[in-house]
Amino acid sequence: MTNEPQGRVLDAGALKALAHPLRVKIFDLLSERGPQTASSLAALVGETSGSMSYHLRALAAHDLIREVEGRGTARERWWERPKGRINLPGPDESMTPSGRAAAQIVTAEFFRLRHETLMAYLNRSEAEVPEEWRDAGIVMTTFLDLTPSQMAELRAELSSVVDAAVERYRGQTGPDVRRVTLRAELFDVPTPAKTTNVTEES
């Protein structure tokens, strides 16, 4: 048993509302950059503010995002992503076909955006990065030989470290503060299918 926060598991309705590449992008931008208006999001993604307003309302209808209280006007509304962990369910046989398709779309788009961000980080020139930030990050991959219980224990340890960092630095501001992305990936490597060697005799 672990003390991992459960977070919100998206239900079928929320998954279907999010199952659009542009909506995943909006959700991701609100996570990365904080509150935005339809106009500011439109400028970031190259769409019209009218299109953004439509997608924002669809996301808000399922509590994926919400209007920022006390900010904005009747003509310009500010939107934010609620704090807290979101758990994306993988495609499951218990889902309806449309639910599985929605889960696949959302998961694929989130990981595509994650990869896009990682490659932008790896490919940027040193001149683009302030000197004090150049050696601050790390990209590390390793392989381990674990049992399922050991993997679950390591998952709990990693989650604890991440959750503690989120609480410690939540809402931090200042001239030296930048938004940082933290990745933790832990999964078993698929076993290759066995092949049969066939010897031909002449």
Rank of each mutant, 00 (worst) to 15 (best):
L22A: 15
A152R: 13
G174F: 08
S98Q: 14
E116F: 10
T107E: 13
S160R: 14
A38V: 09
T73F: 09
A165H: 09
A102N: 07
R100W: 02
R77K: 15
R178G: 05
A136E: 12
L64I: 11
Q104C: 12
F27L: 14
R33A: 15
G70E: 12
R134H: 04
D163H: 04
S94Y: 04
V24D: 11
V68C: 11
G174H: 10
R179E: 07
L118F: 05
R85P: 00
A152C: 02
V198H: 15
T141G: 04
V68K: 01
L158Y: 07
R155E: 07
V9E: 10
G50P: 02
E47A: 15
A19K: 10
R71A: 12
G46L: 12
G13N: 07
Q6L: 14
S94T: 08
R124A: 07
P192C: 02
F143I: 01
L182W: 09
P91K: 08
E200C: 10
A103M: 08
P192G: 01
Y121E: 15
R66F: 03
L10V: 11
G34H: 06
A61Y: 01
R71P: 01
F111H: 15
P82G: 03
S51W: 04
A14H: 08
A136S: 06
L56T: 03
T147W: 00
A12C: 01
N87H: 09
A184P: 00
E200T: 13
L15C: 05
Q150N: 01
A101W: 06
E126S: 10
G50V: 11
N197H: 13
I26V: 15
V68A: 08
A12S: 15
S149E: 15
P5H: 06
E132C: 07
